[in-house]
Design a protein around this nucleic acid. Sequence first.
DNA 1: CACCATCACCCACCATCACCCACAATAACC
DNA 2: GGTTATTGTGGGTGATGGTGGGTGATGGTG
Lengths: 154, 154
Amino acid sequence: MGTSFLGRFDYSIDAKGRVNIPAKFRKGLNPEAEETFVICRAPSSCLRAYPMDKWKNRQLELDTLAETPDGLKIKRQTYGTLSESTLDAQGRVSLTQVQMKLAEITKEVTLVGEGDYVEIWDTEKFNKYIGLEPEEDGFDDAHFNIVKSEMEKK
Amino acid sequence: MGTSFLGRFDYSIDAKGRVNIPAKFRKGLNPEAEETFVICRAPSSCLRAYPMDKWKNRQLELDTLAETPDGLKIKRQTYGTLSESTLDAQGRVSLTQVQMKLAEITKEVTLVGEGDYVEIWDTEKFNKYIGLEPEEDGFDDAHFNIVKSEMEKK
DNA sequence: CACCATCACCCACCATCACCCACAATAACC
DNA sequence: GGTTATTGTGGGTGATGGTGGGTGATGGTG
């Protein structure tokens, strides 16, 4: 099975593009994942790291996409930023230049466990996105929009 | 079986039209492929390289196309840019003039593993296509369009 | 049949990455 | 609170992988 990834962790990326994976996540890894993550692009120009076993499902989804302009683009945008990375002896994965450029990662990195996968963000960018600065982030708007649309369904 | 091709790799093409195939992909090659790729045209004016064994399936698909104007055109556009290329001792394939012209390949080349096949692009062209510059690329739009159309099916 | 261009094969160099070790900082434990 | 285990960070090095060029065989052309 493997446990699900939960929690936020802040690390730094070194000159070789290596980022630490939280010990907690490493311990929860499925043996079938073979210590390997698939890292690719996700919405809002961030990265997602799937342990190998979980990635399989995601790939199945991608492969069923029709070869429409949108379908092709999504596939290429995903595969075109993708890499496989196996944990080194210290429990790190490494990012490619392309991935770092896309996610605007420079030095500080934030990992967010979201169940089956881990998102990798530039720390500053992520803080802005979630609106660590109170009252500026649209959290309330998004929340109330959803509540509202739920109510309209009924 | 052979593993599926995954990941992006950037190389350069030499004066003889030779492009490297990632060591990772070579290792995943099926013995039945006999180190040989079939290279042909794909949507968006790029190239696809199928290992011989996987190509067979693609050819079956093509052969079932009806002889409508569209069907004929697709077949001729595919067969008309096609070449077979066997890996040399350094693990490279070579592209034809026609293929390079079609894909606008000059020097830098990007290979994208997409499961059963590998796409070959001019690096600059590909970066523009996938929108490496964040927030300008329509990734989110395409993503949400697909999610939306999935929801509408249900 | 002679000539020339092209391709397949061979060899040599250099950059990059995977692996290894070493240390610092933190957390856990007694 | 002191000691030990764990976790995160950084850097060196040898093996592997990518690039470029030379040469003889092969096939097309006049």
